[in-house]
Write a protein that binds this DNA or RNA. Structure first.
Length: 241
RNA sequence: ACUGCAGUACCAU
């Protein structure tokens, strides 16, 4: 089972989903029956490669076959619900995923996945509910909530969360800034975007990646600051892609 | 005992 599972993971991780699924079938013909780890690998592989409907079907199959879901199973299934806006199943998983009890660290990871899922489903009320229920929130959790609001077009609220997270002791990271810059981009907030971009390295000690630079080039370009966009492209410490 | 799965940019006017 370990051999086959490792093979399946390898194929998924190299973007070869069809082959991975073929080996998942073949292992069973060969007499190795997938355990929870094998199923988890397949669920996540499907969910991460645009096959979330399939992931949810396979989740049902897994249960039919009497394999008990664990934390990793729920994380993958929750992700698949977010990708397909399957809010009903998402709500069920929200209840089920706590069964059996989880460690505090796992609890936060699970809650973050739920916030992301509800955000993807457009249900910010639920997302906020899960967020509020956690006594302490780390950076990924704040990021997940922020992305939810920004996806709903609530740019101001999302940017407000940026201010709040620092006050509450969560340090913005590289992804926080990608999110914030993208919000400025969508909302056409050039000045604010530039402020954030500069504060990244100056105030937060995070060096902007090429993705951050590309956000800024996009933002400058859309705002009509074409020469500034060109200068940034030419001067950034990355090979333009 | 040990090996395989484990929470976040976005996605092209």
């Amino acid at each position: 089972i370990v051999s086959w599972s490792s093979l399946v993971v390898g194929y998924f991780e190299h973007g070869l989903s069809q082959e991975a699924l073929r080996f998942f079938e073949e292992m069973q013909v060969d007499g190795s029956f997938p355990d929870v780890i094998t199923w988890n690998a397949v669920l996540l592989g499907c969910a991460e490669h645009g096959e979330s409907e399939r992931a949810l079907m396979m989740y049902a199959q897994m249960l039919e076959q009497g394999v008990l879901p664990n934390t990793a199973t729920f994380l993958s299934a929750i992700k698949a619900c977010g990708n397909t806006s399957a809010l009903d199943l998402g709500n069920k998983l929200y209840v089920q995923c706590w069964q059996g009890g989880v460690s505090e660290e796992t609890e936060l990871i699970m809650a973050t996945a739920l916030v992301e899922m509800f955000g993807n489903c457009g249900s910010m009320t639920r997302a906020q509910q899960v967020f509020d229920a956690m006594q302490w929130k780390d950076t990924p959790m704040w990021n997940a909530l922020m992305r939810g609001y920004s996806r709903q077009g609530e740019s101001e609220h999302a940017l407000h969360l940026f201010e709040r997270m620092s006050k509450e002791g969560a340090h913005p990271d590289s992804i926080t800034f990608l999110c914030v810059l993208m919000i400025c981009n969508h909302a056409g907030l050039l000045d604010k975007g530039q402020e954030y971009f500069e504060s990244m390295s100056k105030a937060y000690g995070i060096s902007p990646s090429i993705k951050h630079h590309n956000c800024m080039i996009d933002l400058l370009g859309r705002a009509g600051h074409l020469n500034d966009a060109l200068i940034l492209l030419k001067r950034m410490p990355y090979q333009p892609n």
